[in-house]
Every structure is written in structure tokens, then in C-alpha cells.
């Protein structure tokens, strides 16, 4: 692959004013060329999603990033509402539903639980990638390629410095994706689901 891709970050945090981690991550994306940040809770406080506008936005981008805190092993409710209303039959999937074919989809997630908890023997019994299967399959059904997720673990007691480091690596990841330097087919080998963050933190 190669060439620049236009990236749409669909961001959802219902209480951004109380956020510690996501607010820094999202601010880190400010001013990147070719990246559109779309703050869903700010746009649709009453869940009244404008389907036409959303579909138009999807058409105008090549990579869709679902960025949100992990809530009950899933997305905040508005992302679910977005999926239900925007990915319509005959447009995003089903017969004639090829609007999203060939685009990429990626999750960017922060979890309260630490990385060790998201393992077969751990507290949460499944890895984040496993828990994100519904999204992965949604992407596939719509003919999109699915990238490995960007995950920030253990947010609950995270220091400001670590948060900033994660924001840097998030920005780098988004730029990498935009520049087409990441091949979805090989991304699972290149980066584990936990992303390159740990390197940043340890290095």
C-alpha cells in the first residue's frame, strides 16, 4: 500500500470534563494534517445522530478510528447508536452496500484494568482483541480491513507523565496509519494489540 490516507477519528467520551487520559490523547491529535477529529458526544448530546452527515464524512475518509474509553468491555453507548444508525443496510452492508469497501477501521481504547488483567488467566479472562471481536467483525461485514487496536491499559492510577508519553505514541500511530506505512494484513505481526506504548514507557 502507500500514499496518504485521510483519517477520521470518531471520538466518544460522555464526560470529557472528568477525563484524565483521553483528553490528553485527543488533544495530542490537534493540528495533524489529513486527520479529522469528530467529537460525537459534543456533536450529538441528545443521541440525535445526523445519518446523512455521518455517512458523508465516512465517504470522505479512508481510515475510521473508533476512539473511546473501554466501558463494560465495549464502547460508550453513543458509538453503539452511531453503528446502529449510520451503517445502514444497502449502504454499508448487504446488497449494494459497498460504500465502505476497502477502507480501514481501527479501535483506540483506554482501559481501567491493567494489561495483565486482560489475559486468559487474568481477572478479565479475555484479551482486549478478543473482547473487540464485535467491532472487528462489523468492519469485516462492511468490507473494511481491520487494524490492530491501540490500547492504553491501566488508566486509573496513571501518572501525568505516562499519560503524556501515551499521547505521543498515539499521535505517532495515527500518523503512521495516515502515511500508509502500516499494512493491515501484517499489522498484527508488527505490533501486538498492546501497541508500541510499552516500549516508549520502558525506554
Amino acid at each position: 500500500m502507500g500514499g496518504r490516507r485521510r483519517v477520521l477519528v470518531l471520538f466518544a467520551h460522555p464526560a470529557l470534563e472528568t477525563s484524565r487520559v483521553n483528553r490528553v490523547l485527543i488533544r495530542g491529535l490537534e493540528g495533524i494534517d489529513g486527520v479529522t477529529v469528530h467529537d460525537l458526544y459534543e456533536e450529538y448530546p441528545d443521541f440525535d445522530i445526523d445519518v446523512a452527515t455521518e455517512q458523508q464524512l465516512l465517504l470522505e475518509h479512508d481510515v475510521i478510528v473508533l476512539h473511546h474509553p473501554f466501558y463494560w468491555y465495549s464502547t460508550p453507548a453513543l458509538i453503539k447508536q452511531w453503528e446502529d444508525l449510520v451503517l445502514t443496510h444497502g449502504w454499508a452492508y448487504g446488497s449494494g452496500g459497498d460504500a465502505l469497501h476497502g477502507k480501514w477501521m481501527m479501535s483506540a481504547i483506554t482501559t481501567g484494568g491493567g494489561k495483565s488483567a486482560y489475559q486468559p488467566g487474568g481477572h478479565n479472562r479475555f484479551t482486549v482483541s478478543q473482547l473487540l471481536r464485535p467491532i472487528e467483525q462489523t468492519a469485516r461485514l462492511c468490507g473494511m480491513d481491520y487494524l490492530s487496536p491501540f490500547v492504553v491499559y491501566g488508566t486509573l492510577d496513571m501518572h501525568a507523565e505516562a499519560i503524556r508519553a501515551h499521547a505521543v505514541s498515539y499521535r505517532r500511530r495515527i500518523e503512521t496509519v495516515r502515511d500508509g506505512a502500516l499494512d493491515p494484513l501484517s499489522s498484527h505481526q508488527q505490533l501486538g494489540p498492546e501497541s508500541a506504548v510499552d516500549d516508549v514507557m520502558k525506554g
Binding site: V51, D84, L85, V86, L87, T88, H89, G90, G94
Partner: peptide, 9 residues
């Protein structure tokens, strides 16, 4: 709300 309309499905 076409998205919630399973009729076409």
C-alpha cells in the same frame, strides 16, 4: 430511522 429498520434485511 432507516438504521433501525430491519425490513429491508
Amino acid at each position: 430511522d432507516l438504521g433501525w429498520d430491519a425490513e429491508s434485511l
